[in-house]
Design a protein around this nucleic acid. Structure first.
Length: 432
RNA sequence: GGGGAGAUACCAAAGCGGCCAACUGGGGCAGACUGUAAAUCUGCUGUCUUCGACUUCGUAGGUUCGAAUCCUGCUCUCCCCA
């Protein structure tokens, strides 16, 4: 199946220039997407771009990831808001390294195949480009009229925008356009891909290639990822979902995908996994018949966790999920199977408190543990109330007011897991 | 500057001498149901040594056997007229 057809059934094409398909069928082509090096890790908002590159490589074409060191310093006006922070070069290099390491999980950067992936940084060719040279060699060929016609610019010039747009931002499309020209010349790169908000910037590039080098290049954009409920994709209460396990634990990563709504899951599974059309269609059908099994979400979460992290991380995430969301014996068994590191990982961010081992071995009343020792609940009255309402669990087992903690309740010889209701966890850390 | 209204728990809003720890709605928390969803239903939502006691209704006093409720000073908010 051709690349364009592949991307089309996956719902990953928002717009494309006529003739791309033939162009791609003729020979091996090189295509690129830009990535902002604003952090030393990618987050799941970048995944669509990565998947587009991945599909390129799978289809036998050459993917190029362009780290926007230079463009990241300017800020894209088609984004919403304000001017962007300027990054210094040291941070830039560090971020670039982090990003490359993550891209390696998806793309082949090391083989001897002709379509091996490459990583470039536009800072490398922009940094020594003098202003004078730039306006003469690049600026000369693009009219301001052309630049002003872009939606991204128009929007910023209109009265809705309070801040106006700086000249720096205005030139953004020239810089991004020049990247394309540079890659066209240097690596015979003829395709640029990106989110649909990038269409204007990309076409400035194809325009430059046409006017300056009389070349032919193409733009392909994918729809911006949305969520059925209208909230922003890729964010949780605690912020971005990162690919870096230090920033977002594999468990949380797994959970993020598992919690996808039915509607979104069908869409996402096409975009974010490499499963073939038949498999996905079967899954969607099964899901419609038995939605409560949530096969789509499970498959989505599993595929992505393995792809971004590892099989082992997935297994741990599943164990952890069982502990947190199953009841009774099953959960207890899972809890016992968790090692110290996994426990700390899963319960990262839940309130913790320390108690001495002697207090536990002497027997500690549940009320005292919740209020005086743990400080998890405000008052004894509240603790009593919750206990009466059957809301308190110790190690996933519901307990009553008469419960006393003792050494039998220790997990990994170190923890006691207290819980109010389904979602509120408290970890008692037992120290000598 | 003159006149009027008001200040109640997380928010909104009842109560106007004892039956008020304070109606009701929202929010929050929990329980049931469920798909770690949505909806729905139920309970809880001042503190404590919890079948009882204690401290709360802007703030400080006063009247009274008894005050969120009546009186006085103070602080703040809103409205109307200049």
């Amino acid at each position: 199946m051709s690349l364009i057809k592949e991307l089309t059934w996956r719902g990953m094409i928002h717009d494309s220039m006529p003739g791309v398909e033939e162009h791609l069928n003729e020979a091996m082509r090189a295509g690129y997407v830009g990535v902002d090096p604003t952090a030393d890790s990618l987050h799941i908002g970048h995944l669509v771009s990565i998947m587009m590159l991945k599909h390129m490589q799978v289809a036998g074409h050459k993917p190029i990831a362009l780290v926007g060191g230079a463009t990241g310093m300017i800020g894209d006006p088609s984004g919403k808001s304000n001017e962007r922070n300027l990054l210094d070069e040291e941070t830039l290099r560090k971020n670039q390294e982090g990003i490359k390491n993550q891209l390696k999980r998806f793309l082949d950067f090391d083989s001897n195949e002709p379509n091996v992936a490459e990583l470039v940084n536009n800072y490398d060719w922009m940094k020594s480009f003098s202003f004078l040279d730039f306006i003469r060699d690049v600026g000369k060929h693009i009219t301001v009229n052309y630049m002003m016609a872009k939606d991204s610019v128009k929007k910023r010039l209109s009265s809705e925008s309070a801040d106006g747009m700086s000249f720096t931002e205005f030139t953004y499309q020239l810089v991004q356009g020049f990247d394309f020209l540079q890659l066209y010349r240097d690596k015979n790169c003829t395709i640029q891909m990106g989110g649909s908000d990038q269409w204007g910037n990309i076409t400035t590039g194809t325009e430059m290639i046409r006017r300056i080098d009389q070349g032919k290049a193409f733009a392909v954009t994918c729809p911006l990822i949305t969520k059925a409920d209208g909230s922003k994709f890729g964010k949780t209460e605690s912020g971005n979902v990162w690919l870096d396990p230090e920033k977002t634990s594999p468990y949380k990563f797994y959970q993020f995908w598992l919690n996808t709504s039915d509607e979104d899951a069908a869409k996402y599974i096409k975009i974010f996994t490499l499963l073939d059309q038949k498999t996905i269609e079967t899954l969607i059908k099964e899901h419609q018949e038995e939605p409560h099994l949530r096969k789509l979400q499970k498959t989505l979460a599993e595929e992505l966790t393995v792809m971004v992290h590892s099989k082992e991380d997935l297994d741990n995430a599943i164990i952890a999920s069982e502990v947190l969301f199953k009841k009774g014996e099953e959960a207890l068994a899972g809890l016992k199977a968790m090692n110290e590191r996994l426990i700390l990982d899963v319960f990262e961010g839940v309130p913790q408190a320390e108690v001495s081992k002697s207090e536990i071995s002497n027997g500690l009343s549940i009320i005292e543990a919740l209020v005086d020792k743990g400080g998890f609940l405000k008052s004894n009255g509240e603790a009593r109330r919750e206990l009466k309402q059957n809301a308190i669990s110790v190690n996933k087992q519901k307990v009553g007011e008469e419960k006393e903690l003792n050494t039998d309740d220790l997990i990994s010889d170190k923890f006691i897991l207290l819980q109010k209701g389904k979602k509120n966890y408290y970890l008692l850390n037992v120290v000598d």
